[in-house]
């Protein structure tokens, strides 16, 4: 769990990190998904469910969407939507 310090300098271990804060290559485990009902359902259908690992592959330029991977599903979502997905156990992915 040492890596947490590397990514979020002052974050204590219990803090949840929004998916939108992750840099490319980092991953975490989904703790909760917030947002309007319709959005949560769509996210759940795409695999955003508590306990599942998600890795950020890249971010589009000009503050564009994130490209993330959950298991075998690749999803693009905006920062606003990614902000509603909170993660625990964030760590940089082994290269």
């Amino acid at each position: 769990m040492m890596q947490i310090g590397m990514t979020l300098k002052s974050a204590p271990m219990t803090t949840r990190t929004p998916l939108s804060h992750l840099a490319p290559g980092q991953q975490g485990v989904i703790a909760a998904v917030d947002g309007p009902e319709g959005l949560r359902q769509r996210l759940a259908a795409l695999g955003f469910r508590a306990g599942r690992a998600v890795v950020v592959l890249r971010r589009a330029s000009l503050r564009g969407p994130l490209h993330v991977r959950l298991g075998t599903t690749d999803v693009a979502l905006r920062q606003a939507e990614a902000g509603g997905v909170s993660l625990r156990a964030v760590e940089p992915q082994a290269a």
């Binding site: 947002g35 769509r42 490209h67 599903t73 690749d74 999803v75 693009a76 979502l77 905006r78 939507e81």
Partner: peptide
């Protein structure tokens, strides 16, 4: 409108 789409292989 939220923007969430799949990127198929």
């Amino acid at each position: 409108e939220p923007f969430v789409i799949e990127l198929p292989p």
